[in-house]
Design a protein around this nucleic acid. Sequence first.
DNA 1: TCATGGTAGTTAATCGTTTTCTTTATTTTA
DNA 2: TAAAATAAAGAAAACGATTAACTACCATGA
Lengths: 327, 327
Amino acid sequence: MKVSMRDVANHAGVSVATVSHVINKTRFVSPETTARVHESIKQLGYSPDAIGRIFKTGKKKLVGFIVPDIANPVWALIIEVVEDVLAEYGFKLIIINTKEDSSRELENIHLLSSGIVDGVIVASTLVDFREIQAVIPSDFPIVLIDRTLENANCDSVMLQDFSAIYDGVCRMIEQGNKKIGFITGLMRLSTSRERLSAYQKAMADYGLTVEPSYIQYGNSMAKSAVPLVRNLLDQGCSAIVVSNNVMTGDILQYLTNRGLKNGYDVMILGQGIEGQSDYNLHQMDLMIQPSIELGQLAGKQILERLEHPTHPIKNIVLTSTLSRRIL
Amino acid sequence: MKVSMRDVANHAGVSVATVSHVINKTRFVSPETTARVHESIKQLGYSPDAIGRIFKTGKKKLVGFIVPDIANPVWALIIEVVEDVLAEYGFKLIIINTKEDSSRELENIHLLSSGIVDGVIVASTLVDFREIQAVIPSDFPIVLIDRTLENANCDSVMLQDFSAIYDGVCRMIEQGNKKIGFITGLMRLSTSRERLSAYQKAMADYGLTVEPSYIQYGNSMAKSAVPLVRNLLDQGCSAIVVSNNVMTGDILQYLTNRGLKNGYDVMILGQGIEGQSDYNLHQMDLMIQPSIELGQLAGKQILERLEHPTHPIKNIVLTSTLSRRIL
DNA sequence: TCATGGTAGTTAATCGTTTTCTTTATTTTA
DNA sequence: TAAAATAAAGAAAACGATTAACTACCATGA
């Protein structure tokens, strides 16, 4: 059924070694023999078995990317960036979508790390790095992206959202908003917690009280963030901070539908996506993450780690910016 | 460095066979031996090498999904659906993003088909199936999704958009539109051609002429479809058919920015995504593809093909619907 | 006592490549 | 012309797991 190198060798009347060398051009083989081998390859329809090769060489030129939510455009963007970086070096990217499900993440990290890929980039939905460590070989190359974990001792490329959110909230306050609501992301994620604390600090710095009900716990995987906004509006909030891009889009749409104009009836500080103009029409303040650079650095970092397994660990932090509407 | 089954066997003072049987529970091993083996596994930090196993057994429980554009939400949706179907049967999904690039597609199909996965689902950006056939083993399981290819002789799950577009255009005409523009997708794709011909047939059936300039050639990967709409509007088109969802979103946003109200100033027939409400606010006619069912059927089909390699080829066609605004 | 059967484990072949070490044939050199 | 050098290709051992075939041991019953 399946044709192997052995079959080709027999057919061409040479040894498997010669066939291998012809295929990989790894030593001189006379033109006649080469031709004969190629002819046999074509006739038999042979194509080398990647698994056999990987098994022998251990070299895969394959990187895994564990993504929490492929349907979120910001991840789609980062995937593309990472792909481009890897492609430059002849590496391919395998994408795994975890849907923010911890066990799915661990299962897949385990699978990939057990020989399928050379290394992985992980946007983790976990809390503690040791959960990952428990399922991978001790020296397996891994780069965390976007979200930190407790006890992480591996390369990472992170985002610092604190100051962007902080500045944004200050601006809201300075424009007279007192009741400011906050819609969180998944609270187990470092990013969500950082953003919340920026909001809390800004409020505290201006001496404003944060009623517990001002904080609405959401997550980007939920069907809708609308009930959360509605709740905040009902409480009389005049401004709302939204912790991630998916919910931002959801909420803006809700406001439009309800006939509320952002910036007049209510003020929203949300999260935008680099290079995307969808939100232009709302003329609003947005926190913009340097996603492109994030992806580029993560791609470069995993390659560097593969190249130099023993180099010291590198932790990179990028800073998000507040893009301001002129009003 | 890397610890293999052999090391575990030595450490535990048993044979590799016994270790294998302990790990896979593939036959009875005495409790004491089992314990000793487990102890050694823990002490040495052993974890079985997936490649070694795959190499030997040939069983991977891995399916590849070649997607043209991961940033397009409709593909993200389909990916999730396919994942769910496969997960039910213990299969995992590896996603490859081709960005509508033919050579990327072929490279990756070749890679995956050469032993990495059991089979692939492909939303191809190619024209002729023989291009694929040239890079895969003759009996490699493959399911085409969404887009047909010439000379395709493999399973497929396709969409029939013709009638939805046709009906939509007829409706536009019946409402008095005479100059109707059409913005195409990538013309090498079967889907784009089908949609264009539906438009042309509707126009012809009503005796309306289609100026060549009414047809603007776009593609979902382009930065923007705005110049194309602008061109059509400048020509005095009162209605425009948009061939895919990405451009539809792009164009609606442009119209909003420009202060044009869809349905009053100009009439757009675009493509929507199942279960997504983004377009509700525009209250417009939309062609809606049964993407969820599409994904489910593709997932089931590849599994069935893996189970029964010799069953006859199956070609499924689903029909898109025209979702109508009440006006 | 010895065939019988069951139990717990070992041996060794195997999957498809790569690659090191040899071998054989041919040419060059002294 | 024999020895040395070179050229071309072959033989065989890995890589890490699975698994069919086999062995050693012990208990049982006639």
